[in-house]
């Protein structure tokens, strides 16, 4: 017992982590985490401005968020758009990942790069180009416009996670199922799908979150009749000085964190089985 205790102690003496490095690490970690934590106390404030520290304690901002039709409509629009965009991105992204998995050559590599390019395209450049074209195609301010644009930026995440899942997939299984008489679609649904389902679910969740949180393109596609939650939050800082954004932020941050934790939990359980 004493021997095992002594060993690491001696090792750290030879090559210790300097105290100042630990301090810098802690400060940087706080820099990452702290800003969002400021939002939560703000959301219980009784103030009608953005003053900090918040005054009093009330659920007034939450009440306003969940009853004011402007905020509620924005929330509803965002959920609907994100669901549809995630669905579209997941279907076309999964199909593309499977297709590209079975293809080799320069053209396939080029297609993969092309599908990923929206990750590095500055959102504002994309937003402006989409706005100008969608204006002519009468898609600005429409549900279809939001869904198309958000689905396109969600595809890379589906592609990455499904491609990752396909890496561990044995193609012999498909040949086996074909030799047992399963048509391709049935083979996909009963053999491929269950094995790569975790990749598909992960991709779908990231596509959902990407759309739900997207603000730059949404700012350009907005119309008075149809705008998303991030756009309403943007308005509340720039135009309205409406502290309801604190409640909205807290709800969104909590929801997204929960989704990620659930995903991790489900993923962990699947693997243990």
């Amino acid at each position: 017992m004493t021997v095992t205790l002594e060993k690491p102690r001696r090792a750290t003496k030879v090559d210790p982590i300097p105290w100042w490095l630990k301090l810098v690490g802690l400060a940087v970690a706080l820099y990452f985490v702290l800003p969002t934590l400021f939002v939560i106390p703000m959301s219980f404030s009784t103030a009608t401005t953005f003053q900090f520290p918040p005054r009093g304690f009330s659920l007034r901002l939450y009440q306003n968020f969940f009853t004011n039709p402007v905020w509620l409509d924005a929330l509803r629009n965002s959920v609907l758009i994100a669901l549809l965009a995630a669905l579209l991105a997941t279907v076309v992204g999964t199909a593309a990942a499977i297709g590209l998995h079975n293809l080799t050559g320069r053209l396939a590599r080029f297609a993969r790069t092309l599908l990923m390019v929206s990750i590095v395209t500055p959102a504002i450049v994309l937003a402006v180009a989409v706005y100008i074209s969608f204006l002519q195609w009468r898609l600005v301010g429409t549900l279809g416009g939001y869904v198309l644009a958000h689905a396109a930026i969600g595809v890379p995440f589906v592609l990455i996670s499904v491609t990752g899942a396909l890496g561990g997939f044995d193609p012999k299984l498909l040949r086996a199922s074909a030799s047992l008489g399963a048509p391709p679609l049935r083979a996909f649904l009963t053999v491929t799908m269950p094995l790569i389902s975790r990749g598909i679910v992960t991709g779908a969740v990231f596509a959902f979150v990407t759309s739900f949180d997207e603000v730059v393109i949404a700012l350009f596609l907005r119309s008075p009749a149809l705008q998303t939650l991030p756009v309403q939050m943007y308005n509340s800082v720039t135009v309205e000085i409406d502290p309801t954004i604190a409640a909205s932020s807290s709800v969104v941050v909590t929801a997204v964190t929960t989704i990620c934790l659930v995903l991790q939990f489900v993923g962990g359980r699947r693997r243990n089985r």
Partner: peptide, 13 residues
Amino acid sequence: WTSVMARNFAWVI
């Protein structure tokens, strides 16, 4: 994965 708007709002505060 913290919301863009929540993060920027936090920095304003």
